[in-house]
């Protein structure tokens, strides 16, 4: 690890100011960033910790939406998002206890790892990513592997989830990392079903629109029985071929629908 400056502001405004310098980097729970720095693959000149900002904490229900502060840990979402059980269940199965106690929702969404769980939850929930500067719809937020709509220095202060009528997340884990080899979050909203897939695509998290259309007509596992995905866009690596991932998306979608229905 290279030397760096460290700041721990107590307000979003101070954090934004601290991030203004060159090569400053926001630090959530550090579950990706710190190991990367230890391997000397990242060398921010300054880390700005977001863990001391009270306004980025808390899980609140407001009508049909659930707002999770950007610095809330996975463990806290698992324990506190009781109004959105599928989200709480998903958060309770990220990584291991150490990861869940340190890692944050804002950190996960800002990193947008192609195998992370939160991007699927946010996309399927038609979530709104709230930053210090604006609100970004999930459909506009995820822009490919490790790529998001965030500008330099922009901080995710919270995430507003639309609590669906029914939802479920199914994860098939990669055996070594236990990240999602394929993860599918299915959410049935009043205005339609959303199916978000993580782990599978070279483009990062995506919505499976054919499945959504079929499930809009009939929210049952049978409704998507004949659907297939084009393997050519899928990730192929030592843990699974493109064809296998495309197949698993179908299996996990069916299981999520069956569990949610």
């Amino acid at each position: 690890m290279y030397n760096f400056e460290f700041e721990k502001p107590s307000t979003v405004a101070d954090a934004v100011a601290a991030l203004a310098g060159d090569e400053a980097q926001a630090l959530g729970g550090g579950q990706t960033l710190i190991p990367t720095m230890k391997q000397r693959l990242a060398s921010p000149s300054k880390l700005v910790s977001l863990s001391g900002i009270a306004e980025m904490q808390g899980v609140q229900r407001e009508g049909a939406s659930l707002t999770v502060g950007g610095a809330v840990s996975h463990a806290d979402v698992a324990a506190q998002a009781t109004d959105y059980p599928a989200l709480a269940e998903m958060a309770g199965h990220i990584g291991d206890p150490a990861v869940r106690n340190r890692g944050t929702i804002g950190g996960s969404l800002a990193n947008n790892d192609p195998s992370a769980d939160y991007p699927a939850a946010a996309l399927a929930s038609a979530a709104t990513v709230v930053t210090n500067a604006r609100e970004i719809a999930a459909d506009d937020y995820f822009q490919g592997m490790f790529d998001t709509a965030l500008e330099d220095g922009e901080i995710i202060t919270g995430v507003k989830f639309s609590v669906p009528q029914a939802a479920n997340y199914q994860k098939f884990v990669q055996p070594a990392s236990r990240f999602a080899l394929v993860g599918v979050f299915v959410a049935k909203h009043a205005d339609g079903v959303r199916v978000a897939v993580t782990g599978a695509s070279e483009e990062g998290v995506f919505r499976w629109s054919e499945a959504e259309a079929a499930l809009d007509a009939d929210f049952s596992a049978d409704a998507i029985a004949g659907l297939t995905l084009d393997p050519s866009d899928m990730i192929g690596d030592l843990h699974g071929t493109k064809e296998y991932r495309a197949h698993l998306v179908g299996v996990m979608t069916k299981r999520a629908v069956a569990a949610a229905a």
Partner: peptide
């Protein structure tokens, strides 16, 4: 069931950490 040390054809170790070596 799980463990496999894998090199690519250029001799790069693909399973070089616990993220990829199960």
């Amino acid at each position: 069931l799980l463990e496999g040390c894998v090199y690519d054809e250029d001799g790069q170790l693909l399973s070089a950490s616990f993220m990829d070596y199960a």
